[in-house]
Lab assay of single mutants.
Amino acid sequence: MAAGGDHGSPDSYRSPLASRYASPEMCFVFSDRYKFRTWRQLWLWLAEAEQTLGLPITDEQIQEMKSNLENIDFKMAAEEEKRLRHDVMAHVHTFGHCCPKAAGIIHLGATSCYVGDNTDLIILRNALDLLLPKLARVISRLADFAKERASLPTLGFTHFQPAQLTTVGKRCCLWIQDLCMDLQNLKRVRDDLRFRGVKGTTGTQASFLQLFEGDDHKVEQLDKMVTEKAGFKRAFIITGQTYTRKVDIEVLSVLASLGASVHKICTDIRLLANLKEMEEPFEKQQIGSSAMPYKRNPMRSERCCSLARHLMTLVMDPLQTASVQWFERTLDDSANRRICLAEAFLTADTILNTLQNISEGLVVYPKVIERRIRQELPFMATENIIMAMVKAGGSRQDCHEKIRVLSQQAASVVKQEGGDNDLIERIQVDAYFSPIHSQLDHLLDPSSFTGRASQQVQRFLEEEVYPLLKPYESVMKVKAELCL
C-alpha cells in the first residue's frame, strides 16, 4: 500500500493539533497551500530580480507567473513527485505547466533550498508574528487579574506546605514575570531571523556568478533584492546548502521555554482548584465526569500541561538535527523538520489560546482563602504575639514557653481530632496574655502579614508589564474561544 493518505478522510490519521486544537490561522501558515504558494512567490521574486539585473526574462513571463501564483494543481504535483521522487522539481514542473512561456526560467540558477529553506524562514517569521500578540493578550488578562487582587491576602506555599502570606495578585505576578520573559525572547528570536537568500547549491553562489558572467556586484544585488522582497532586513552571508540548523534550535528553545512557563502556571491553577481557592472557567453544560456528576475538573489547565510537556520535548529534535548536518548538509534534517517545526508552533498556539481562555474567566473564592488563612495564621502570628507581650512588660522566655504549650495543644486538636485551630481562643482565655487581649485582632490582621506584596504588584505592572504590552494595544480586544 502506498504511503500517505487522504487526510480529510475519517479513515486516515490526522494530527489532533490540526484537527482538534490549533487555530485556523496557525494551521494555514503550515498548510501545503501556504507552503507551495510561497515557493511560487519566491520563484517570481527571483525572476523579477534577475530581470532587473539584466537576464533575458520578459515582462510577459513575469506576468504569467504572477497570474498563476494561486493556480496550484495539487493532484498534478503529487503525481509528479511520485514520478520524480523530488518535491521541488515536482512543483517546478507543475508551475511550468500553467506558465508555459515562463517554464524555462522558473528556478533559474537556484537549488531546492532556495524555495525550501527560504519558505521555512518566512513561515517561522509569520508563525512567530501570530504567537506574539496571543502571548501579549494572556499577559494582559493576567495583569488585569493581578491588579484587581493585588491586596487580597492568601496563604503562600513553599514545598506545598503553608508559608508566609502573600497576595493573590502577587502570586499571579510570578506567572506574568515568566511570560514577559517569554514574550521578550519570542520577539528577540523573531527579529534575529535572517533570510537564507540566493546562495546556490553549497552556499557559494557559483551558479549565479556564472549567470551574471562573473559580476560579483550583481550577485550581491540579486541576494539583497530577493531578501528585501521577502520582507527581511538581512540575509546570511555564510550558508551551506541550507541555512544553519542552529536557527531551528533557537526558535524551538524559546517555544519550549514558553511551554515550561505555561505548565507551571496551569499546575498552580490545578492545585488551587483542589484547594477550592480558584477555578478555571466551567461552562453551564460542561460535564466533569461521566460517573461523578459533582466533579469540576480543571480540564483546560490539564490540557495545557499535557501539550506543554510535548512542546518542551520537541527542542531535542533540532538539537540532534543540527549535530548531524555533515559538511554542507545531509538530508537527516528533512523529514524531522517537516514534523517538529509545525508541531512546535501548533502546540504553542494551542496552549496560548487555551491559557487566554482560562485567564479571561478565572474565578476566585475569597471566603475559602480566608478560612485557610484562619487555619494557619495563628501559628504564624506567634512571633508577633511574643513581641507584643514583651512590649507590655512580659518575659520573652516565659511567653515563648506559654505559646509553645498552647500551640501544641491547638495542633493536637487540628491533627488528632480534625478540629479547627483554636490557638487564639486559648490565648484569649489565658490570664497571662490579658495585657494584649485587646491587640489580638490587630495582630491577626492578614494584611499585616503580606509585606509589600501589593506595592510590588503595582510597581511591576507599571514599570515592566504595561510598557512591554504597549506595541500590542491594537490587538488586545480579541477574545479566545474554545470549541473543545
Rank of each mutant, 00 (worst) to 15 (best):
E283K: 13
Q177C: 13
F327A: 13
S151M: 11
F379M: 13
M380C: 04
L307V: 14
P100T: 12
A78Y: 11
D11L: 13
F95D: 00
Q210L: 04
L209I: 12
N384I: 12
K134E: 13
L193G: 07
C173R: 01
L46T: 01
P56F: 07
G394P: 07
S412F: 14
E48D: 01
R404P: 04
I436H: 04
Q325Y: 05
P100N: 11
T167N: 01
V262A: 14
V478E: 14
K276I: 04
R338S: 00
N185W: 08
D332E: 02
G418S: 06
L258T: 09
P10T: 15
I265L: 15
L311S: 05
K402Q: 07
C113P: 04
R452P: 02
P293I: 07
R20M: 01
L152M: 11
T111I: 00
G419T: 09
D6C: 07
L346P: 04
G116F: 05
S454R: 11
A150S: 11
L443T: 05
S448M: 14
D120L: 07
R309H: 12
Q51G: 08
T350A: 14
D420R: 05
L44Y: 07
F433M: 07
Q61N: 12
D192L: 08
A77K: 05
A18K: 11
T330C: 15
Q184T: 13
L341P: 06
E302D: 06
D317Y: 00
V138E: 08
S19Y: 12
L44C: 12
D445R: 14
G96C: 06
G288T: 03
A78W: 10
F95I: 07
F282R: 08
C340L: 09
L484T: 15
D333M: 06
A260N: 07
D182I: 07
R171M: 04
D248E: 09
A110C: 07
K35A: 08
L443M: 10
L222F: 06
G419M: 10
V226E: 01
V198K: 03
D420K: 06
Q164A: 10
E64C: 12
P298S: 08
I386L: 01
M389A: 00
T119F: 08
H217M: 12
D216R: 05
C172D: 04
D422R: 01
I427L: 14
D216S: 12
G116Y: 01
G109A: 06
H7G: 07
I373P: 00
K66T: 12
D216W: 10
R171K: 05
A291N: 03
V262L: 09
Q397Y: 04
G197R: 01
S447K: 14
P366S: 03
L42D: 04
S112P: 00
S434R: 13
F212L: 10
